[in-house]
Design a protein around this nucleic acid. Structure first.
Lengths: 250, 250
DNA sequence: GTAGCTCATACTCACCCTGAGCACAACCTC
DNA sequence: GAGGTTGTGCTCAGGGTGAGTATGAGCTAC
């Protein structure tokens, strides 16, 4: 008897049922001012033809590495090309209700990824079936993926409040207005430009000036804005709290 | 070929390696004004004789149910006795680095539990090996359990800020001072009694008055305080922010 | 019983942050 | 060039916070 069998049977004699572990990724980006999520169309059963979050089996790698690998595969981006380095990836939550996959017990470790506007997945690649969809238009998803997406959106909305996460959605040099557009897209509400400006500059380590100025103003007018890059803070103190909503509380 | 084998091999042909899924529980309580964590002493290899977080295999049940079951087994408490109903349990994070268990690939879904002061695990039961330890005295733990505990403490500290979680650490009727003692124990710092009092009563839904008064004052004097029970808020607005610490930011 | 310390609760005051509105000049499109 | 748009800065009122003080009820020790 191998040490492994001994291990399993000593804990749970005779009852051991096989389990599969997967990662599913809620990849978010902002395109044309709207929050988008990366979805794939399922080929095989069950839920053939349904949309689903990209994901797959965990191989001999860390969970974080599995999430990054899946993201790279589905977007057609290659690690080391620079684009993926700017993607923020974090673990979201693990979903493992019996029956969430009709075939067998599947434990799915969900990840959340935030990226600056990424290109459309290349049609020729193995990422052919993936596409960006505005989050409001995600519709019904396979398995419990709609719940996972909802949890991911909640997490994203609240992490904007107390972390500099918004900088992960913009290019490496950005304007305060770019940052404000991220908050507006994720929170779904406009922010007061003057107050936002004051707040962002007053939080230590949120952004730092590059000293440069954009080559042109906004598409519909306005002065050439100053450029910033992400600062070194990992938490925002004091936080940038979103206005209280009634249904947040109870 | 079963549907299950087909499923596995279609995704990951020939590479499928067995995986075990466990839950580990960071159970916290407050005893004598200090934050304690529930630990067990391991019998078998590896890490025989080391302390570890209580945990075990996930059976045919939800992950949440597995965590509650493990907690009940290790504390010797029986579900339905009322005590366990007041325990707050939430998922913390999933740990799955290859090599974290030398025997095989083990994915551990960690849970965080908060309870009012619980009795010592009964010596005669199957919970014989479990005991409460002040968190500062946890010392080295088996596997990556020290990191899990640290993550759990971080989560607990920050959840006190924006949720009424502190009420899960006290009896169903409590005084403002009881609540303040929870914050002091978890955050490791004293709070200004007057300001805390004002703040707790001003946050809608945090606590509600029972109209009663405690039968006696504090152990060392002072008036008989009013009694409160938990309100119906699930989030604190505005939050009860802990004083900024330098090392929080970066 | 009483002295002396402890505590729950309340009040005050200065300060900071926020939301809201206004100002202005630079900038775009037409 | 006209007219609308926008980045940036300012002001002002209101609310929340940290720190201090006050008061009287309540405990333990003697």
């Amino acid at each position: 008897m191998t040490e492994e069998q001994e291990f399993l049977e000593s804990y749970n004699p005779g009852e051991y049922a096989p389990v599969a572990v997967t990662v599913d990724v809620v990849a978010l980006t902002i395109r044309e001012g709207r929050l988008h999520v990366l979805l794939v169309e399922r080929g095989g059963h069950p839920f053939a033809g349904w949309r689903a979050l990209p994901g797959g089996f965990v191989q001999d790698e860390s969970l974080d590495a599995a999430a990054l690998r899946e993201l790279a595969e589905e977007t057609g981006l290659r690690p080391g090309e620079g684009v993926l380095d700017r993607v923020h990836v974090e673990q979201l939550r693990t979903y493992g209700n019996p029956g969430r996959d009709p075939r067998m017990r599947v434990i799915s470790v969900a990840y959340l990824a935030f990226a600056p506007s990424l290109p459309d997945p290349r049609a020729g690649s193995d990422a052919a079936g993936a596409f960006w969809v505005p989050v409001e238009a995600a519709g019904e998803l396979a398995f419990d993926h709609a719940a996972i997406l909802a949890d991911g959106l909640d997490r994203a909305r609240s992490k904007l409040e107390y972390t500099p996460l918004a900088t992960a959605f913009v290019e490496s040099e950005f304007t305060i207005a770019d940052l404000r557009a991220v908050y507006a897209a994720v929170w779904g509400e406009e922010l007061h430009a003057g107050n936002f400006h004051r707040k962002v500059l007053s939080v230590p380590g949120f952004v730092e000036s590059t000293g440069e100025i954009a080559v042109r103003g906004g598409e519909r007018g306005g002065p050439k804005p100053k450029l910033y890059r992400a600062g070194d803070a990992r938490l925002l103190h004091p936080a940038l709290l979103r206005p209280a909503r009634e249904d947040d509380v109870r």
